[in-house]
Amino acid sequence: MKYKSVFDIIGPVMIGPSSSHTAGAARIGRVARSLFGREPKWANISLYGSFAKTYRGHGTDVALIGGLLDFETDDQRIIEAIDIANAKGIKVTFIEEDAITDHPNTARVMIGDDMGELELVGISIGGGKIEITELNGFELKLSGHHPAILVVHNDRFGAIADVANVLAKNKINIGHMEVSRKDVGKMALMTIEVDQNIDQELLDELEKLPNILKVTKIVD
């Protein structure tokens, strides 16, 4: 879909008519892109509740794809995001779901390429704010509005303390932290929101710790 004009709205600086349906959607897409670490070759996006009913009229579709293309919420290219994705050879599929979710503005974003895949569930809670509630099967609560570190690790004694000690040594303040695991003693996910951006050297240091499998960051 294409818009013929740029709308002014109350809320964050953005392209589109709705902060919940457009700015929030763009941020969900951009978090997925940040976690994936590169431009995907395909995207299957399931929409629930209000998103499913109004995504064309409110620009949720172009906003999600704009986010996957790493566009900011006020980037005018969002208007043409689906056309841009098509020109790049990115295969995009939208699925309107009937299932009832905890929040009406919910999207399940599945992206991938020949090197891997990522699955993320995000909700737009209003005013352009979002929460990421699931990542590759792990439950979490991530706002997407602060720098964050995601640490995949073996569920072993001392793993959390080791990560916290490295952050303290580097004078990184933790704003929010939680741990999700699928089963006791198996793989787990640490979600750590911090007060400042993280450089690659710190990520490399974290990844060298015992029982740490993968470290990813989301920049503010």
Rank of each mutant, 00 (worst) to 15 (best):
M1D: 03
K4N: 15
K4I: 10
K4T: 14
V6H: 14
V6K: 15
D8L: 14
D8W: 07
P12M: 12
P17R: 11
P17K: 13
S20C: 11
S20F: 02
H21R: 00
H21S: 06
H21V: 00
A23I: 04
A26M: 02
I28Y: 09
I28R: 03
I28P: 01
G29V: 08
R30T: 12
V31T: 08
R33S: 06
S34R: 05
F36G: 03
P40S: 12
P40I: 09
P40C: 12
K41Y: 00
A43E: 03
N44G: 01
I45N: 03
S50V: 12
S50G: 05
K53L: 13
R56T: 11
A63L: 02
L64H: 02
I65A: 07
G66M: 01
L68F: 15
L68H: 11
L69S: 08
L69Q: 07
E72I: 01
R77Q: 13
E80W: 02
I82S: 00
I84F: 01
A85T: 12
K88Q: 07
V92R: 08
T93K: 15
A99F: 04
I100V: 14
T101Y: 05
D102L: 14
H103Q: 10
H103N: 10
P104V: 07
A107T: 06
D113N: 15
D114G: 11
G116Y: 12
E117V: 13
E117C: 10
L118W: 13
E119I: 10
L120G: 01
V121W: 04
G122T: 03
G122P: 00
G128M: 11
G128T: 10
I130D: 03
I130R: 00
I132Q: 03
E134T: 06
L135W: 11
K141D: 08
L142Y: 03
H146T: 07
H146R: 15
P147A: 14
P147G: 13
A148N: 09
L150D: 04
V152E: 13
N154S: 14
D155N: 15
D155L: 08
F157E: 09
A159K: 01
A159D: 03
I160V: 15
A161G: 11
D162E: 13
V166P: 01
V166W: 00
A168V: 05
K171F: 13
H176F: 14
M177W: 01
M177L: 15
V179E: 05
D183F: 06
V184G: 00
V184S: 10
V184C: 01
G185F: 07
G185N: 05
M187V: 05
A188P: 01
L189T: 08
L189A: 09
L189S: 05
M190Q: 13
I192F: 07
I192R: 06
D199E: 14
E201N: 14
L202Q: 00
E205M: 12
E205Y: 03
L209W: 06
L213V: 15
L213Q: 10
K214T: 10
K214V: 10
K214S: 15
V215L: 11
T216D: 08
K217I: 12
I218Q: 07
I218K: 06
I218A: 04
